[in-house]
């Protein structure tokens, strides 16, 4: 990928399918296998769902911008919103062994990406930085 791909959607769950399609194609263009690209698609979907749930408190009238870039660091996805400040530790998470509804999203995000972090320099809203390093086998 020579140039970043940027997709902006309204913060309504009906548009998550647009982000999933873009994530899958961007991952495939960067050379990932079908299975790896599916993991990327799933992770980006979960991250955008979290924006709607946590940052926007289900306000469907806002915007989410997702940028895909394949650079020296690896395959990078940046998800930006203008909602409430989020911290990874505030997002509902459960142990995989603990069977109850909810709390799985972060596991799917970490399955696909080596690093998952909010950009602390962003003053208003959130900028989530997801990076999958080159030549990383995260299928295990």
């Amino acid at each position: 990928m020579s140039n970043p791909i940027v997709v902006t959607i309204p913060s309504h769950p009906r548009f998550l399918s647009v982000v999933r399609a873009a994530a899958l194609l961007a991952a495939e263009i960067s050379g990932m296998s079908c299975s790896e690209a599916e993991d990327i698609k799933h992770a980006v979907d979960e991250a955008c769902s979290n924006v709607i749930k946590y940052a926007y408190q289900c306000d469907c009238t806002r915007k989410i911008t997702v940028k895909f870039d394949d650079n020296q660091e690896g395959f990078q996805v940046i998800i930006e919103d203008s909602g409430n400040k989020s911290r990874l530790e505030d997002i509902k998470i459960r142990e995989l062994d603990e069977v109850r509804p909810g709390g799985l999203g972060i596991h799917f995000i970490k399955k696909a990406f080596n690093t998952v972090a909010f950009d602390k320099k962003k003053k208003n809203g959130n900028r989530l930085l997801l990076t999958r390093h080159k030549n990383t086998d995260k299928t295990a």
């Binding site: 999933r20 698609k41 799933h42 979907d45 979960e46 769902s49 069977v99 109850r100 509804p101 909810g102 709390g103 799985l104 999203g105 799917f108």
Partner: peptide
């Protein structure tokens, strides 16, 4: 074709 964590949560809730 696809299921996310909300779908899984739905099945778990129904199962319980």
């Amino acid at each position: 074709k696809y299921i996310d964590s909300s779908g899984i949560a739905t099945f778990v809730e129904a199962l319980k």
